[in-house]
Each structure stands twice: as C-alpha cells, then as structure tokens.
Design a protein around this nucleic acid. Structure first.
Lengths: 237, 237
DNA sequence: CCGCACACGTGAGGC
DNA sequence: TGCCTCACGTGTGCG
C-alpha cells in the first residue's frame, strides 16, 4: 500500500556514482573449488558459498538503501529549492519551515475560498503582519462603498509611509472589501515600532470605514437575501 | 581507572536489546581488576581509561543522534498530519506529495495576489478540477460585463447539474471576473464522464462570455491606464 | 525467498 | 576540544 508509481526518476541531484562505486568483484574466497572429494571440505564449501550469497545480498541491500537515501535527499533539496531562504539550512529546520509554509499557504488558500473575498455584512478592519521577516503587512477593510473610499485609503497609507504592493477589490451590492499588501519603508524598523504602526493603521482605517456610514444604508437584508438566492450583481441601482 | 573493555564495537547489537533505554550502568565487567601491583598494568589502565572515555563519548553521540532522528521524524509526521491522505505512506512519497502541495498552494496563493482577482483584458474561461477526490470543480470566467451575465451562468450550471458552492465576483471598469466553486452531483461518476463535463462546461461558458462582445467595447486602454494609476472603481459611468 | 522501508549505531567533517 | 549534522552500512519486520 505504499509508494505507488510516483518515484520521480528525475529527483537525482545529478552528481551520482562518481564518488564510491561498488566494484562488481564478488568472490574473494578461492578456497573451495577443487575440493570435491572430502566431505569435511564439502561442509566448509557449503558454508562459504552461503557466506558468499550473504555478502551478495548485503551488497544489494546496501545499494538499495543508498537509492532510498538519494530519493529522500533529492526531495529534500527540491523543497529547499522551492522555499526561499532555506539553502544550507539544517535538515530538521528545513522540515520545520516546510511545515510553517504549508500551514501558512493553507490558511491563505482557505481565505480565498471561504468568505474573505465576499464583503461581509459587518464593517471589519484587520491589520496583520505577514511572514517572519515582518516586511509585508496585510490590511483588509470591509465597509459600505463610496466614491472616494479608495483614494482615502491610499492617502492614509501614504501618510504612514506605506507602499502598496498589491491591492484586491471586491464589490457586491454596494458593499466593498479591499485587501492590501503593504510594505513599510522606515528607517529604524523594530517590532515595537511595528506594533505602534499597526495601531495607527487600524485607527485610520476604522475612521475611513465608518465615515460613510451615516448617509446610505438599508442594503443589509436585501443584500443578504440576494446572496442566498445567488443573484449577485455588481450594479448599483 | 576502570577496566571495562567491554563494549567492543563487535559486540552484537542485540546484546542490550531491552527496548531502548540507555541504562546509566557503565561498568559491568570485573574481569581484570585484581592485579594492581604491576607497572605493565599502568599502561593498560591508561589505555582502558581512554577507551572508557571513548565509549562514554560514543554513548552521548548515540543518544544525540537519536534525538536528531526523533526531531526529523516528528516533523515528518506533522507533515503527514497536515496533508490529507498521506497516512501510512512511504517517507519519500510523503515528501513528494509535500512538494506537490507546496507548489500547488504557492500557485493558488499567487493567483489571489496577482492577476486572478483583477479581471484581465482578454476574455478567459478556465475549468479545473480541484483536489484528488474530483468532487469540486473550479470555473472562472473573465469577460465584458452585462446585466444578465450572472443568471446566464447560473442557468448553464443548472443545465449541467452543477451546484454552486461558492461564487466570487470582481468587477473593474466594466469588465468582470467570476470564479465559481462547483459540485457535480451525478450518478455514475467517473473520470471519463468528468472530462466530458469539463468540455461541455468550457463550451457553454465560452459562449456566454463572448455573447456580449458585439455591443460595448473600447474600455481597454482606459481601464488599463486606470489600473496602473491605482484608481480602481466599482462604479460604472 | 526477495524486495522494500525503517531505525539504529558509528565514522567523518564543520564550526 | 566537544557538539552537531550528515552519510553510510547493517539488522529487522512486513508483504
């Protein structure tokens, strides 16, 4: 029940067989070929041939194990190649980072599939620092849409010295969800400074999200019903 | 100054087969301690103490190596836990699937950040079967927007006996991108049937996407410029 | 019996 | 020098 047909044949790290090659020489014992007449010798011969077979098996086993090791290490270095910054890293630590990476990507992927990309009913502002290098910041704002919302957000980011790397906009029935990937370009960067940045960001974005709340309302029930009936529309009335 | 020449490396590994707990008892051998009065013994004692230290080092090395192995295998089983369907799978194959998973998730994740969620200039219809169970189908349609586009799509899915699990709509400057997660509820399901389903889906969606092409055009350059200047808007003129 | 996969202990090399 | 990581060969259990 294991291994299936996978066995990527190309996983070999290309440098192979140069270092130690198993010589095919098998029989070091010359003792037992002439002696067919003595029974004691026969026993010895049997034992030695048995030994020879054992060593042959051992040899096969040895190189099989080596192939297995090469397969595993090949996959491991493929992983190293895939995940940036893991070159010349400990094998165990590499696996740890692979785990982190998988978890992270799974979370991201589930975000897109689930409800993240459909603007929710309630206003929502989230600011999270992505990854371990703390360079990228992800900010998402979900609120009622209005003509100058986007430029307001951009201005807020500019005031905080944040560069927009990516922006993602989804609008459904008058509500909008904006997700930004930002990059903070500051001189004395530190985790302390970063947390305060988080706070000011959240404050500013909250203000922007709520500023259009007084004017137009009443979409809630209608929009929800529209969603449930699967009659999405991007068009305002 | 213990004698203890025991534990020669040749000593069979099964000798201390008591599961694996390293007993702290070090000195079982009382063999050559009686003669303390001879000077030749001094050299032997020095040699033996050196040997003893060597074996102690070996012991430390042994259990350190074991810890390392445990760490790696721990991470490996964590990965098994994370990726569904890899229980009791070969270690190398597990790594292969981890690689696939990482590649897949990276692609998906880059999709959300890059161009997937912004309607592209050219019309585009994609149908892909997600995951290994072949139950979920992801269909994305990118085309010029029109009032009844969505209901047309829904009708097409209904005709193909597809249930909409999730829908994601992004509209920018008159163009729209719809991404659907669908579930096929059919009796005799098979990969053959599924590929034909793919074909008919693609055909139907292509028809729908192109049907509004004749009427309104000319957004292209304007929209592209708007995107580059980061002046997104969900509002039609 | 053989192929396969795993865990183990040990030698070698890098700080 | 000591600790750590790695590769290697081998013993062992499973189909």
């Amino acid at each position: 029940m294991y291994s299936k047909k996978c066995t990527p044949p190309s996983c070999s790290p290309s440098s192979y067989s140069s270092s130690h090659e198993e010589a095919l020489v098998v029989i070091p014992c010359p003792s037992q070929q002439g002696s067919s007449s003595q029974c004691g010798e026969a026993a010895a011969a049997a034992l030695s041939v048995e030994e020879a077979r054992a060593t042959a098996n051992l040899r096969i086993h040895r190189q099989a194990e080596r192939r297995r090791r090469e397969r595993i290490n090949g996959h491991l270095s493929t992983l190293r190649r895939l995940i940036p910054g893991t070159t010349k890293m400990d094998k165990a630590s590499l696996l740890a980072r692979v785990i982190d990476h998988v978890k992270d990507l799974t979370r991201k992927a589930s975000d897109i599939g689930k409800g993240l990309m459909v603007p929710s009913e309630a206003n929502e502002v989230r600011v999270e620092c992505d990854g371990e290098d703390n360079l990228l910041i992800k900010a998402s704002v979900c609120c009622e849409d209005r003509p100058d919302l986007f430029s307001d957000l951009i201005q807020a980011f500019r005031a905080l010295k944040l560069t927009v790397i990516e922006a993602e906009i989804v609008c459904v029935g008058g509500r909008v969800k904006n997700v930004f990937i930002l990059c903070s370009r500051r001189d004395g960067e530190g985790s302390v400074c970063l947390s305060s940045l988080r706070e000011s960001m959240k404050e500013a974005l909250d203000k922007i999200a709520c500023s259009g709340e007084a004017s137009g309302v009443g979409y809630s029930g209608k929009r929800l019903r529209a969603l449930q009936q699967q009659q999405y529309s991007c068009y305002d009335s």
